[in-house]
Amino acid sequence: MVMTAQMQKIIADAQPMGWILEPQAKKLLADSGLGIPEGIVTDSFDTAQKFLAAGAGPVVIKAVSADIVHKTEHQAVVTGIQDPDTLAQHMERLLSLKGCSQVLVEEMVSGIEILVGAKNDVQFGPVVVLGPGGTGVELYNDTAIRLAPVTPADVYSMVDSLGAKPVFYGFRSRPGVNMEALTQMVVTFSHQLMDLEPHFESIDLNPVICTPDRCVVADARIMLLKK
């Protein structure tokens, strides 16, 4: 894998800020083959409402702001929006948040929330992190860490080492994740990390949402190394 011109531009543009905004981060990941939700970035109610109308289900909207690294803490994410009025109402609020001139409107994917992360470790270089995802990840601290790049067997061993392993394989009649899709995503991601090694400090793909069919990166945050 090589860094495309688009990838390099995204990183260069984000360097002064120190991290890559979610829409650009997702573009970077999609370029290397990771699944991301359908979505648009806009400041227009009209465009947003058309996106909602064109889709089959609810949407999620998120503030795009250089001043908001951790969106949950600023209530900068609204999920499960089904009708145009609610959409307009929340969009107006998000656009009033600090530094927010546009919102990301995306199809809403439901499934099991997983954290796929990365750290550019001082001693070991890029490492991949996998665990149950969501906003409480630090509370449970249930993660597996491996040196990047990883093999498919590594991904299985990571899942097997987690306390939340049953969630991945399905339990209490709830379906698990598509392990093939997850494995492919983590392996691909881990190879991309080697290309990103000179640039990134750490990465959260949290959550990656996994259904029995596919895995998509529902949120992405790429922290860059200070140059």
Binding site: T143, I145, S202, I203, N206, M223
Partner: peptide, 23 residues
């Protein structure tokens, strides 16, 4: 500060320990 969730969970020792085990 202002780092990611991953960075805060993958502390130096956890990274060391799990990578040793992996290999």
């Amino acid at each position: 500060a202002a780092s990611s969730h991953t960075a805060s969970m993958a502390g130096d020792y956890r990274v060391f320990s799990q990578i040793m085990q992996q290999h």
